[in-house]
Write a protein that binds this DNA or RNA. Structure first.
Lengths: 155, 155
DNA sequence: CTAAATGGTTTTATGATGCAACCACACAAG
DNA sequence: CTTGTGTGGTTGCATCATAAAACCATTTAG
């Protein structure tokens, strides 16, 4: 098999996430969906992508439980693609990608939009990672541990 | 041209980030690099990926300023791939991907590792987004604004 | 009823990926 | 110096994914 290697059985949660949304288009589709896009044609025209690819990606994300097909919202008999909670949970990933570009892009003047606090219109701060007790953590303050064995009901 | 569409000129910072690290392997290479992997062979054996693909990806990330080639760290005359600050800046993206899997994966029992606070050994909290004044923000509390025009020196 | 827009699928061409084989260089032993 | 081995790649196919365009069914507009 020369198939694209799948990470489905991999124990790394990063790989498992990439298995679902690690392709070239999925996160951009999610970006549009978070902005309120729901219709096939609207995704296609805003992203400028081929319709067959869009079709495959939408179906894949529906299979992964990221999007769901809803019968309609206006009167029309067409269907819509709406984000599930799992899909909306991708928002921090998009924010992290955005902030990385804002901080490190070689041509920041080409970045067209900024994410702001709706109430004040001011840019949001960088994502922060905290410990249970509230301490701010950097990468060096963390480590990976094997997942504790699933607790089995003791007879 | 049937080339894979490039997002290089796109104004969306998410698309610009994906242009650099949006392929199938790059983020996994970064994951290993953050864990201390530096040598070609070590990447190749840990990730189980084809050497030609690894070669292309490493070169691409060097070109993007995410990795740099360093002459050696032990005595050998070989080279090493080390993360630049731009590369280390990808850490929040990996954390976001990991936390998304932890929260939404359909088979969480297959997830092998958890990210913990090194000091206490306790799991880290979810990434948080805050406003300038410190308020915790959810997706609905934010919006996109066009980037302000670059301020030009007034004569 | 007819026409056009919507929401796709099919067809075909090409780029990307995966695997295996091959090769160049470093380094160590004899 | 010569041989041998490990590292760090490159090259050559075979296959898969992607892109563009054509095609089609259904829905909506007129």
């Amino acid at each position: 098999m020369v198939k694209r290697t799948s990470f489905e059985g991999d124990g790394c949660p990063v790989a498992r996430a990439l298995e679902a949304i690690g392709d070239w288009w999925s996160l951009l589709i999610i970006r549009e969906a978070l902005l309120g896009v729901r219709r096939f044609g609207e995704f296609q025209s805003k992203l400028g992508m081929a319709k067959n690819i869009l079709s495959v990606r939408l179906r894949s994300m529906v299979d992964h439980g990221i999007l769901a097909m809803a019968p309609a919202s206006d009167g029309s008999a067409y269907q819509e693609y709406v984000l599930t909670p799992k899909g909306r949970g991708l928002f921090p990933i998009l924010v992290a990608l955005r902030q990385w570009s804002e901080e490190f892009d070689d041509h920041p003047e080409q970045i067209a939009t900024i994410l702001v606090d709706r109430a004040k219109g001011r840019p949001v701060k960088k994502l922060e990672m905290h410990a249970e007790d509230g301490r701010l953590l950097a990468q060096g303050d963390t480590m990976l541990k094997p997942r504790p064995a699933p607790r089995r009901r003791s007879a």
